[in-house]
Nucleic acid binder design. Structure first.
Length: 497
RNA sequence: GGUCCUUUGGCCGAGUGGUUAGGCUCAGCUCUGCAAAAGCUGCUACAGCGGUUCGAAUCCGCUAGGGACCUCCA
């Protein structure tokens, strides 16, 4: 049970992970379209794949993690009005397209930092890889799988499907797609409705435009990922990730394009995270039910009962398996908030405990249980990244840790080796793999000094049974968001939140 | 309409052919000057109906609800 198993969307089953090059992993994750502010739904893939990235590194792999920024416009509704999201928004906000894209890229980076996600190894932009995309399209045309019409280039899906396994990834049958009776304007250029654009001719009012062999235009959406993944990870790479909603047509198209271009299926393991829902419904712009990340952090949204710390969101997401839908609610988020606080405080206590070998002999049952719970961290992660189960085990350890701290259970109830393993693995998992960090913000020295002073005064008051003063200190601090707690050993601790 | 997925206790959510998930909430107790925190205890669920099985919440079928994709989407 020490092999990593990953659920591969392509085969629809869990497979043992074997990288193409031993010791190295190439991972591509579909990034964000920076035509607007990121919302809660966007947080899921980036946190999910951040943990996968961290875990792969923890296993000793050298990982190249590529996550793109989609800053070139693609169709809002293919065929309808060649409408470019970014151009449109730029006009709306009276910004230069690149200005707009930079603004939202910065906001995205800011949010990712709040979530404590590690930066990808390479973060390529679509606009920075127009040349690569054009080259790729040329190759596809040369191979006979794309055709040009009026300055636009389309991929010939029907031809591809005749000799390739089109639709396998998304479970789609071409015949069904061809039968679509849906009425869409501007489809007449295509030979078949299932064909998708590789390059699109730009109308005069279209602001984002580039010169190409087929005239002035802009790239289709799917080609950017194929081009950038190929450039930085090679014709074949290990992992490609993204949201489930990208399975079709985006990822299916990627497979087709890359297969023609590079003569082999591009990806070994496809990983897809499920959606975050709100009232049982996918969160998305078209549903008009999004909560932006900035709103989540400030609480400034009619649906939010309060502000939620980025770490609470991260914890919330990790508490469920990445392939399940996750339903948003204030209750669920507040439960996560309390849970995280409890876990983190226990974790900090554990770090502060030093092992003292003493009289009481080792409690075999406790020792065994402790070892089992810790050993299962690895087991659960190896089983398709079971972060939820890892956290559940940690919570089972929390009462034990708290009891050690309060001396209800002597530290020597477990062996020194086990205690050290517990300390080490908690650190590795809580911080390095799950990427959690302290929710409390007040870590500056001046505050610490002031708090020490207040604690001293309060202790003196308590010794004199001057409870009016001691309560005043505690209550007023609480109003300021600082929680004072009397410890069992007579000391006092505090947390700011 | 087509394809696929899902339905777990007050809420959120793991998981699985036979054993306590876990978190939050709630109630009681211990500790405490009082709190808070912490510890202990209690609340025991798997949509419905059939079937397979010694045994199913877990496998199969049907029914009902919910959802995703089929168009931009994390």
């Amino acid at each position: 049970m020490d092999e990593l198993k990953i659920y591969n969307s392509y085969s629809r089953q869990k497979e043992v992970f074997k990288p193409i090059t031993p010791g190295h992993v190439g991972m591509y994750v579909c990034g964000t379209t920076v035509s607007g502010e990121s919302h809660l739904g966007h947080a899921r893939p980036y946190i999910t794949f951040d943990v996968i990235y961290r875990y792969l590194m923890h296993l000793g792999y050298k990982v190249r993690y590529v996550r793109n920024i989609t800053d070139a416009g693609h169709f809002e509704e293919e065929g309808r009005e060649a409408e470019d999201k970014i151009s449109k928004k730029a006009v709306l906000e009276k910004l230069e397209p690149m200005e707009l894209v930079t603004k939202y890229t910065n906001l995205f980076h800011w949010a990712m930092e709040q979530f404590n996600t590690l930066k990808p190894s390479i973060e390529p932009t679509a606009t920075g890889h127009i040349v690569e995309q054009i080259e790729m399209i040329k190759k596809i045309i040369d191979a006979g799988y794309a055709y040009e019409v009026n300055g636009s280039v389309y991929f010939d899906v029907k031809k591809y499907a005749a000799s390739h396994d089109y639709g396998k990834l998304s479970g789609r049958v071409l015949e069904d797609l061809l039968e679509t009776t849906r009425e869409l304007d501007g489809q007449e250029e295509k030979r078949n409705t299932a064909d998708f654009a590789l390059w699109k001719n730009a109308s005069p009012e279209h602001i984002m435009r580039w010169q190409s062999p087929w005239g002035v235009g802009f790239p289709g959406w799917h080609i950017e990922c194929s081009a950038m993944a190929t450039k930085y990870l090679g014709a074949q790479f290990d992992i490609h990730g993204g949201g489930m909603d990208l399975l079709f047509p985006h990822h299916e198209s990627e497979v087709a394009q890359s297969t023609i271009c590079n003569h082999s299926a591009p990806v070994r393991y496809w990983i897809h995270n499920n959606m975050i829902t709100i009232d049982g419904r996918k969160m998305g712009k078209s549903y008009n039910n999004v909560i932006k990340l900035s709103e989540l952090f400030t609480g400034d949204h009619p649906m939010l009962a309060k502000a939620y710390h980025p770490m609470v969101i991260r914890f919330f997401i990790l508490q469920t398996h990445y392939r399940s839908t996750l339903d948003f609610s204030n209750d669920a988020l507040q439960a996560a908030e309390k849970g995280l606080k409890r876990l983190w405080e226990a974790y900090e206590k554990l770090r502060a405990i030093s092992y003292k070998p003493q009289d009481g002999s080792v409690d075999k049952e406790l020792e065994a249980n402790c070892l089992k719970l810790v050993a299962e961290f690895d087991e659960f992660m190896n089983d398709d990244f079971g972060t939820a189960r890892v956290l559940a085990n940690m919570f089972e350890l929390v009462p034990f840790i708290n009891s050690m701290k309060d001396n209800i259970i002597p530290v020597s109830a477990i062996s020194k080796e086990t205690f050290e393993l517990l300390q080490k693995q908690m650190k590795v998992y809580v911080e390095d793999i799950l990427g959690l960090k302290s929710v409390t913000e007040a870590n500056n020295e001046k505050l610490k000094g002031v708090m020490n002073l207040l604690i001293e005064i309060r202790k003196e008051a308590k010794d004199k049974k001057d409870f009016a003063t001691s309560d005043k200190i505690r209550n007023q601090l609480q109003q300021m968001g600082i929680l004072l707690k009397d410890e069992k050993d007579g000391g006092m601790s505090w947390t700011a939140f």
